[in-house]
């Protein structure tokens, strides 16, 4: 049985005659390890996440120069310049890059929702074993290489592929006035980029939608039907409004990374109208213009702040609801 003496006395009493290891344990028990649990990941993120971003901010107001380092700051107040940001508005390539990114991201998000919603609903409505299998089949591509899945589509979209030829044949048969030549140019178009993004990010749309739809109480549907609603009305009046948090989460999880996407437009997109992620990378790797590349990054983040905040708001609301 534990001694009933007041805690501090007993702790000291034990320490005095115990070996070193126990003293360390005693130190840990005095809540020091709690601080360590918070402090270590906290410091890591401050060091490797916040500090790098502050450096980007600092470089974005610097001036490019030839030499090492390839950036220089004024040595008097305000130390920096907004010339780089002004430059972004002057050269077409930047704001067209932004517009192009937003356009592609919006279209891709829309199609991902259009495909993802009925799929998520279908999975949520499937019975036990089927549901598990279907869910696993959605998660499976999510775990396998993103790059290789994009690569698989490149194989299909190419002008000589069976898919392209088959599609050309079908279209030429039914809509001959649309098709010219023996193939459809699909690679290196915005269509290919949208398709690549929808394909890659579809699991991110389906999983939060599924999580929301699966939790819905099906007796609500039955109650609505009992009160005279037809299936379509039940969907419109009950299921759809209740799944809004899932829709927002899924849409943001597709929209945000799609806007800054680099790999898919590089591999499948047109060279002449790059998306902003590609512009940023080219500015950094090809032109070695750090200040402009940094200001592109800052401006990109500024565009995405609103969707990120929407996402966090819904997540936090969800977490609060979950806690209750």
């Amino acid at each position: 049985m534990a001694a009933l003496a007041p805690a501090p006395t007993s702790a000291q009493g034990e320490e005095s005659h115990l070996p070193k290891a126990h003293t360390f344990r005693a130190w840990l028990d005095r809540e020091a390890w709690r601080q360590a649990i918070i402090a270590i990941p906290y410091l890591w993120l401050l060091f490797f996440f916040i500090a790098p971003f502050l450096i980007v901010l600092a470089i974005s107001i610097g001036t490019a120069q030839v030499g090492i380092p390839p950036v220089i700051w004024k040595d008097s107040f305000p130390f920096g310049t907004f010339d780089n940001y002004a430059f972004l508005t002057q050269d077409d390539i930047y704001w067209q890059g932004y517009l192009n990114s937003l356009k592609v991201a919006v279209i891709a998000t829309f199609f991902a929702l259009l495909i993802g919603y009925p799929m998520a609903l279908g999975i949520a409505r499937a019975s036990g074993t089927w549901r598990n299998v279907l869910l696993l089949l959605v998660i499976l591509p999510f775990w396998t290489s993103f790059l290789l899945r994009v690569y698989a589509w490149i194989g299909l979209l190419g002008n000589n592929s069976w898919f392209n030829k088959g599609l050309t044949w079908i279209l030429a048969t039914f809509f001959p006035f649309w098709v010219e030549g023996d193939h459809i140019q699909m690679m290196n178009t915005n269509f290919a980029v949208v398709l690549g993004i929808v394909y890659s990010y579809l699991p991110f749309m389906i999983l939060p939608l599924y999580a929301t739809l699966e939790k819905l109480d099906r007796t609500l549907d039955e109650a609505a039907m009992d009160l005279g609603s037809r299936p379509w009305q039940v969907f419109k009046d009950i299921t759809l409004p209740l799944s809004v948090p899932g829709i927002v989460a899924g849409a943001m999880l597709v929209f945000i990374p799609a806007t800054g996407e680099y790999v898919i437009p590089s591999l499948m997109g047109r060279g002449d109208s790059p998306m902003i992620g590609r512009v940023l990378a080219d500015e950094f790797f090809q032109n070695r213009d750090w200040p402009v590349a940094s200001s592109v990054a800052v401006a990109l983040l500024a565009i995405l702040v609103i969707p990120i905040m929407i996402y966090n708001f819904f997540q936090a609301r969800d977490a609060r609801a979950g806690a209750k």
């Binding site: 534990a2 001694a3 009933l4 805690a7 007993s10």
Partner: peptide, 16 residues
């Protein structure tokens, strides 16, 4: 108090 001794500040793992 438990059995005449003040328990208020004793952590759960040392209480009988």
């Amino acid at each position: 108090y438990l059995d005449g001794q003040d328990m208020t500040d004793i952590p759960p793992y040392e209480r009988p």
